[in-house]
Design a protein around this nucleic acid. Structure first.
Length: 325
DNA sequence: AAATGTATCAACCGCCCCCAC
DNA sequence: GGTGGGGGCGGTTGATACATT
């Protein structure tokens, strides 16, 4: 027994709103307010679901709405707030006068996610991909790391694809110094061979990383000047890291850095938290060593993943597209 | 010029929370 | 305290515009 529908679907119009419908709704609300959404369409002479009317009003017709492009300041606010509260669009929108949760959500999904990915930052955790990979590497022994890296690569690739696939090919053209046509032909011919090597490259990179000494600072490798992100995205992927208008500054809620749940690497959704992973790591280290000495040790090792000539990510772009990879 | 791919955004859907009864 | 309904929220879909091949 499901709950009864909010309106009779048969008698209700759906899809795009016409200007006449907009007028009817606007003038009714101007006169009577938005007290009972179920009654509004009936009283306003609209064959619409009350819910649909509410959505149309709140997302489009409300007189205090902004309809233009998002400014840099607004984007920055969204990114900062998202790093703290996650996909709580209504909360984020509440801090942006004239913007709706739907606006913010759409802008995030279509623009900001890609911008962050282009910076080498995971839009879910707001950490550099390098750091996430390092966290993965710290949690498992080498034989398992390789398998998990394959899975991780699959997770990250969607976020990275947009820029990597296009810009990396360009980068390869530049590197080769050959005409694009020639390079493309060569690239295509070699693609299959390279694909076959991908898994091995991942495994090799992680295995190496687990054995090599530290090459990066340990704490918050992504903070202040974004140096590590730049190393990662710039050196490994071949495109510049800097994206105008973005700056990871203090959280508006005072949860800067490790203080915020997001900076503690909490993943959204029900699947995992890196905080959990770190917790398990600490447990594991305590089990092995009898005392907790090792977070730093293992992170040191794993950080070198992305300094070993970027072995992990030195892959042809199509590998990232390949579901098998 | 046509076909195909991609980006954007409005609208819908279903779940959940809150509140009146 | 329990229940049902209204409204809010986040995720997803579909239509359209624009870009690329």
């Amino acid at each position: 027994m499901g709950r009864i529908p909010c309106c009779e679907k048969d008698n209700v119009k759906r899809g795009q709103w016409t200007p006449e419908e907009d007028n009817k709704l606007s003038s009714y609300i101007a006169q009577h307010g938005t007290r009972n959404w179920r009654l509004i369409p009936k009283n306003a002479g609209l064959q619409r679901c009350g819910k649909s009317c509410r959505l149309r009003w709140t997302n489009y017709l409300r007189p205090d709405l902004k309809h233009g492009q998002f400014s840099d300041a607004e984007e920055q606010t969204i990114v900062k707030l998202h790093s703290v509260v996650g996909n709580r669009w209504s909360l984020i929108a509440a801090q942006l006068p004239g913007r709706t949760d739907n606006d913010v959500k759409n802008h995030w999904n279509t623009k900001l996610k890609k911008k962050l990915s282009g910076m080498g930052i995971d839009p879910v955790t707001h950490k550099p991909f390098s750091h996430l990979m390092a966290e993965i590497a710290t949690t498992l022994a080498p034989p398992q790391v390789a398998h998990l890296a394959e899975a991780a690569l699959g997770c990250f690739k969607d976020e990275m694809l947009h820029l990597l696939t296009k810009k990396r090919i360009d980068f390869q053209f530049q590197q080769s110094g050959a005409a694009p046509g020639n390079t493309a032909a060569t690239y295509t011919a070699n693609k299959q061979d390279e694909k076959d090597d991908t898994i091995e490259k991942i495994k090799l990179g992680l295995s190496r990383a687990m054995q090599e000494p530290a090459m990066l600072p340990l704490n918050k490798p992504w903070d202040s000047n974004g140096a590590t992100s730049a190393n990662f995205a710039g050196a490994c992927s071949g495109f510049p890291i800097s994206v105008p208008g973005f700056q990871y500054g203090p959280s508006p809620f005072g949860n800067e850095g490790d203080g915020s749940p997001w900076s503690q690497s909490m993943c959204t959704g029900s699947t995992c938290t890196a905080g959990d992973q770190q917790g398990r790591l600490h447990e594991k280290l305590e089990d092995e060593n009898g005392e907790e000495t090792g977070g730093g040790k293992e992170i040191r090792h794993s950080s070198s993943i992305f300094n070993s000539d970027c072995v992990l990510w030195d892959l042809p772009s199509d590998d990232l597209m390949d579901p098998m990879v």
